[in-house]
Amino acid sequence: MNFENILVDIANGLAKITINRPKKLNALNSATIAELSSAFKTLEDDRNVKVIIITGSGEKAFVAGADISEFANFSVEEGGKLARLGQESLFDLVENLSTPVIAAVNGFALGGGLELAMASHFRIASDNAKMGLPEVSLGVIPGYGGTQRLPQLVGKGKAMELIMTAGMISADEAKDCGLVNHVVAQEELMPLAEKLASKIMRNSSVAISAAIRAVNDNFKDGVNGYETEITEFGDSFGTEDFKEGTTAFLEKRKPEFPGT
């Protein structure tokens, strides 16, 4: 896959997407969002890809926000279309991907950058990371799911504080409030992401996809996540991965999941 704004590397079942706009601190513009959407869809269709890691190039930023110059003169209608297109084409896509997505936050993750990290299935951060949703300081609100996913992750009160103050928090503060799972030195960030990916890849990709759907349904209006869990649990009994997993357990050996 060849792109102008992102790099994609695939090896041994692990795909790494690197947002590569270092001069712009990897800010998201429309072209980058379109490329990310295309890359995620392609990787989702690749059965050999078991885990995706997304990060930013360099040591300063994961994504330092959206490219404000693109929409500073937008109308009300154009602003609404911008948010809807972004949510549907990328942020909702990532959240509902059946392939696990780990965000390796290296440096600033602000605005759309934090929203992209929050759309990922979980997050780890380097100790120099700074995170926040500064949109209200520009007279606008988060438009790529930030007002919805941040409260889910850190609670309503903390989310309200972060959004209304437009402030940044450190990696350690982000870990304390549940926004990220782990904080390590920058040179340890990708090794940790790869270690976690390796652990995930030992397990059934079919079962993991089912678990993602069940967890996500808990946060959807009008959807009973418990019912999704029951259905997905039952469906698991009809998979080859279930047969292999249970047989391997009984035979006291490591399973070799076929992914079906």
Rank of each mutant, 00 (worst) to 15 (best):
S89P: 05
L85N: 15
I52E: 02
S236V: 04
V223W: 01
E227S: 12
D67F: 10
G167V: 01
I19N: 05
G107A: 11
I212F: 06
A207D: 04
G65D: 02
A34Y: 06
S75N: 00
Q186H: 11
D67L: 14
M160G: 00
P258Q: 05
F219T: 08
L189C: 08
F71Q: 00
N73T: 06
A174P: 00
I54P: 01
F233N: 09
A34K: 11
E135I: 04
V140E: 05
L82Q: 07
F71P: 00
M160K: 09
Q87T: 06
S57R: 05
P258D: 08
S137P: 00
D172M: 04
G238Y: 11
L189I: 01
I124N: 05
N26H: 04
M1C: 09
R253C: 04
E44F: 08
Q148G: 01
A15R: 10
R253Q: 05
L25Y: 13
E44V: 04
E256I: 08
E77D: 09
G111F: 01
E232I: 12
L97G: 07
D221V: 14
F233C: 13
K16T: 14
L116V: 07
E44A: 15
L14C: 10
N2I: 07
K195L: 11
G157M: 02
Q152M: 14
L162M: 15
V140L: 04
L93I: 03
A207H: 07
S38R: 12
A61F: 14
Q186A: 10
G58T: 06
A129S: 15
S137A: 15
I141T: 15
V8D: 12
K220E: 13
S38E: 13
A193C: 08
D176L: 04
S69T: 11
E188K: 15
V101A: 02
Y226H: 13
N181V: 06
T99M: 11
L196C: 10
T228I: 14
G56F: 03
A61I: 14
F257C: 05
P258R: 03
I124V: 12
K158E: 09
K243F: 13
L36Y: 08
E194V: 10
V51F: 02
D46S: 14
A125S: 09
L14S: 07
V183C: 03
A207V: 01
I68A: 01
A66P: 00
F62W: 14
A103E: 08
D127K: 09
M118P: 02
N181R: 12
G13N: 10
F62P: 11
A248S: 12
A15C: 05
P255Q: 00
F62Y: 15
T42Y: 02
E35W: 08
R123A: 09
R21S: 12
T147C: 06
G111W: 02
S126I: 08
N2V: 06
F40V: 14
S170N: 00
D217E: 11
Y144D: 02
D92M: 11
V101Y: 01
R21W: 07
S30G: 03
I230Y: 10
T99I: 15
V76M: 12
S170P: 00
E161L: 11
S75D: 02
S69H: 10
E194Y: 04
A64W: 01
L150A: 13
I169M: 03
V140R: 07
A159N: 03
L179I: 01
M190E: 10
S75L: 03
V63Q: 08
I54L: 05
S126Q: 07
A125C: 09
E78V: 00
R47L: 14
G112M: 07
